[in-house]
Amino acid sequence: MAEQVALSRTQVCGILREELFQGDAFHQSDTHIFIIMGASGDLAKKKIYPTIWWLFRDGLLPENTFIVGYARSRLTVADIRKQSEPFFKATPEEKLKLEDFFARNSYVAGQYDDAASYQRLNSHMNALHLGSQANRLFYLALPPTVYEAVTKNIHESCMSQIGWNRIIVEKPFGRDLQSSDRLSNHISSLFREDQIYRIDHYLGKEMVQNLMVLRFANRIFGPIWNRDNIACVILTFKEPFGTEGRGGYFDEFGIIRDVMQNHLLQMLCLVAMEKPASTNSDDVRDEKVKVLKCISEVQANNVVLGQYVGNPDGEGEATKGYLDDPTVPRGSTTATFAAVVLYVENERWDGVPFILRCGKALNERKAEVRLQFHDVAGDIFHQQCKRNELVIRVQPNEAVYTKMMTKKPGMFFNPEESELDLTYGNRYKNVKLPDAYERLILDVFCGSQMHFVRSDELREAWRIFTPLLHQIELEKPKPIPYIYGSRGPTEADELMKRVGFQYEGTYKWVNP
């Protein structure tokens, strides 16, 4: 592979701008107003304001973009700056750019259920340069409990009458099928589907988006991507930290609602779906819905739930269990780990287990898709061969690698495990991989909904998990304890083995 010439960040961002501006969906010269509902909250200060700053800094926003914060707290732009700027990672050389960014910011205080507050917000936006005809993007960085009041008031008082209007809704989209349907029906009564952007930030990850290209742009994968060759698929999300004093919020939802029903299920769809007619948003989402419709409700015998306990040999936070978090209700049975087996009941995947695993306070930070292939028929190497695996590593250190057998150097035919490896950090030294939120917010500006969740996708996802969630809430089974920093409950490994996964433990990928 030829040595790549190092590029400056300015040059890299210039390439990104060229890609972005050559499309006809990006209205570079139009006025846009980006409204952050819930501007005083954690999500706004840690993710949304920093993301908008990065896009502005790199010249990736339309030229005439204004940012308006809205929340109940009586704040000023200076207050917003004070709480969000520490997350910007701005350099001293960017000081003038930073001043320009905050000059485009404003803030309006108001209630979430008060019509007069929204009329005041609308008047404020109209007073901005060309504000009355601007395109408006409303980001709901809010708890779902206020979605209905907020969307109703936005629709009645704050819509642009000339430009387009788009609304970005953060997960969780309800707690179960019934609450999700209620919320979807409410929002759909106010906005068209092409105006609604239900954001799952995992769909903005580079390697998640790469799944489609790997599958449908490489001839070698087509013939082997089926039940005849693939023994099982494992989708993993692991965090090495616990709730760390923020367990009160987590306890309301648990690990299945927080990660599995959305992030992991979306990745499953991209692995299992048929080739779409095109890369058009609805063509892709149509195929994802077909996959979900082929999955039956989760069966309790295919589920393992766990909850982390303190590690007596650990240090600091590792010595504390979930129930030691003062914000967690006493005696909570909320799971911090889950392993679930699903089956896609169609011709391509009949009988292939899709194993979804996620948890907190585990032994490493990792998100990946792992396809394990069947054993080689007619073994001539005296059971020395391990199964081939194709691994798409989402985070950290984005990579695609194939675990395969090669001859060990020497005189004899002794096979050993090795890999074919594409590590993004080595291959793409001159490429700026956008943060997931950067990519998705740019998608909203461009009107691309491919990486957002459609209402029928959402409904099918909740259909699969709601009976299990209701059973857990009714019966309150005690989750299996696992030690902070471990791989999780051993019962999860036993479940995976029972459905056909072979864990060798003899080879570990190392970032080159």
Rank of each mutant, 00 (worst) to 15 (best):
R198K: 03
Q22K: 12
V208S: 05
T10K: 15
L121G: 01
Y70H: 09
A90R: 07
F250L: 01
R215L: 04
A109Y: 15
I162W: 14
Y249N: 00
I154D: 02
Q178L: 14
I67K: 04
M212W: 07
N153G: 13
K45A: 07
A217K: 03
A141R: 02
Q178H: 15
L203K: 00
R192V: 13
D181Q: 11
L137E: 01
N185Q: 13
S117M: 11
R17Y: 10
D79P: 01
T236N: 07
N105T: 12
F26W: 12
L137A: 12
P144D: 02
F138D: 05
Y202V: 01
I234W: 04
I36K: 04
S117K: 08
E63P: 14
N210H: 03
E93I: 11
N122Q: 14
S179F: 03
M37P: 04
R192A: 12
E252A: 11
A71W: 05
I224L: 15
D194G: 10
H32I: 09
K152T: 12
A71R: 00
F241S: 04
P92I: 13
I196C: 08
Y197A: 02
K47H: 09
G174M: 01
D113Y: 13
E93G: 11
Q133S: 14
Y202C: 00
N210Q: 06
L211C: 07
V169A: 08
Y118I: 09
G247P: 01
L211Y: 04
K46L: 04
Q195T: 07
R198V: 05
A141P: 04
D58P: 03
S180W: 01
Y118N: 04
V150Y: 04
G110L: 03
E19M: 10
Y112H: 00
E156M: 13
P92L: 11
R246S: 00
F237E: 01
I154R: 01
V213K: 05
N126L: 15
K152C: 11
K95G: 13
G254H: 01
L61G: 02
V108A: 07
G247M: 06
P92N: 14
E94Q: 12
R104K: 09
I15N: 08
L7T: 09
E206H: 07
D194H: 09
S184W: 06
D194P: 09
A6N: 15
S117P: 11
G163A: 11
L20T: 06
N229Q: 14
H155T: 09
P143R: 03
A44Q: 03
Y139R: 03
T243R: 00
D24I: 11
A103H: 15
P92C: 11
L128R: 10
M212I: 09
T91R: 15
L137V: 12
S73N: 06
W164R: 07
H186K: 14
F88T: 06
R17A: 15
R72P: 02
W53T: 01
F26C: 01
I52K: 02
V233Q: 03
M207F: 01
G174H: 04
I167M: 15
P144W: 03
A149E: 14
Q209P: 04
Q111F: 11
I224F: 07
A115N: 13
L96K: 07
Y147S: 00
T243S: 14
G69Y: 03
F101I: 04
R215Q: 01
A103M: 15
E206D: 06
M159T: 14
N64F: 09
I168Y: 01
N185P: 02
L55F: 05
K95C: 11
I168N: 02
F250T: 02
A141S: 08
V68C: 09
R136I: 08
F21C: 12
I48N: 00
Q119E: 14
F216G: 00
K205R: 02
I199R: 04
R246N: 03
E93P: 10
G204H: 01
E94D: 12
S29L: 11
R81E: 07
V150D: 04
A71M: 03
E3F: 07
Y202Q: 01
W225C: 02
V68P: 04
F21Q: 10
H201M: 02
Q161A: 15
R192N: 15
E85Y: 09
R182P: 01
H27E: 14
S179W: 02
V77Y: 09
L235E: 02
Y49R: 04
A39I: 00
I162H: 12
T236G: 02
G242A: 07
F253T: 04
T91V: 15
L203R: 00
H124T: 12
M207Q: 07
R57H: 05
R9C: 10
H186P: 04
Q11V: 09
E170A: 04
I80F: 09
A25Q: 10
F191A: 01
P172T: 02
Y202I: 02
F138H: 03
R72L: 00
E94H: 12
E244M: 14
Y197K: 00
G69V: 02
L130A: 14
I35D: 04
R166D: 01
A103D: 15
I230A: 06
F237M: 09
F237S: 06
E85H: 07
K238P: 03
P86F: 07
R166G: 05
G245W: 07
G23D: 15
T236H: 07
S184V: 14
S73W: 02
Q119V: 13
N126Q: 13
V146S: 05
V68F: 07
Q119M: 15
N210E: 05
S189D: 12
V146P: 06
R72Y: 02
A217E: 00
F138P: 01
E18A: 08
G59L: 07
S117E: 12
G41D: 02
I33A: 09
K45R: 15
D194C: 10
K89V: 10
L140H: 06
W225P: 02
R81V: 10
E193K: 04
I230S: 00
S157D: 13
Y70L: 11
Y70K: 03
I255H: 04
T51G: 05
T65V: 14
C158M: 10
L137S: 07
A39M: 06
S73G: 07
F173T: 00
W164P: 06
G131A: 11
V146C: 10
I36A: 01
L140Y: 09
P240E: 11
G41N: 03
S29E: 14
V77E: 12
A217M: 06
